[in-house]
Design a protein around this nucleic acid. Structure first.
Lengths: 130, 130
DNA sequence: CTTGACCTTCCATCTACTGGAAACTCTATC
DNA sequence: GATAGAGTTTCCAGTAGATGGAAGGTCAAG
């Protein structure tokens, strides 16, 4: 399989696939003409990576998950630990964003949004402690 | 005021302050020895930037907000538009993250997390459509 | 034989900083 | 006056995770 076909099947841009090879996540074969030749196993890895990335795992997490996936003797505890840690980070990010959202929506509601210069948003940014 | 003092007062690392000068957000004066010399107005801009960044505005948003802040004839509608757009992005990001959180917490709950290799998390990453 | 789609590598760019090296300045102390 | 230490300067490189584009090789169709 050439990169274009894999790209369609895995749902990842060719650029991204080449990048994943660069950083050693996959190692496709090469045809005599220099084209990358992807095995089914490469395809599966890429699909796995796509899903992991879609869940927000970092590349390094993906690398570890991929290694665990390959390892028939893995302990599910190891996988779970990565996911749990990631989940905690997601939750903390959500909390941060929710706080920002609350502040912002309050300010947006307060601002007249007309032609006059008075603006509670700028006032807040100007005066309040961080 | 030297950079160290401003750094403390504005709550931004010196590196960040130099960076903000680099990209033209502030233009402090220079003392004869080459040291940056920050006026009160620079300080206020930096504090403003710190707060805007803390609310997650991009640097370009900050640049625009700063310009509006400086403009006595601004229309609050312009400020509000920036904030509203940003709010929409925050909300969409929260929604994305919440979906991820739901998926992940479900998987983490399902996974035994013991020494055995069976793992619903890996199964999901392996099989399911993105 | 040419056209166009596909593939290759390499280098640059993006966001918003951050780290570190080498060198200069200032202040305090001896 | 020497020196130590803190503060400052510039410059270069690196982070995450790609993405864009240029210059060129390859392949299949007509």
């Amino acid at each position: 399989m050439n990169i274009g076909e894999v790209s369609k099947k895995a749902g990842l841009p060719p650029k991204t696939i080449r990048y994943y090879e660069d950083i050693g996540l996959i190692t496709p074969l090469r045809d005599p003409n220099g084209y990358r030749s992807f095995r089914d196993s490469d395809m599966h890895k890429l699909a796995f990576l796509g899903r992991s990335r879609a869940l927000g795992f970092t590349i390094e997490d993906c690398r570890n998950l991929l290694a665990l996936w390959d390892d028939q003797d893995r302990a599910s505890a190891d996988v779970r630990a990565i996911a749990k840690e990631h989940l905690a980070q997601i939750e903390s990010k959500i909390a941060d964003l929710a706080a920002i959202r609350d502040t912002l929506s309050h300010l947006v509601r307060e601002c007249a949004g007309d032609g006059r210069p008075d603006c509670p948003i700028l006032n807040k940014l100007e005066k309040f402690p961080t």
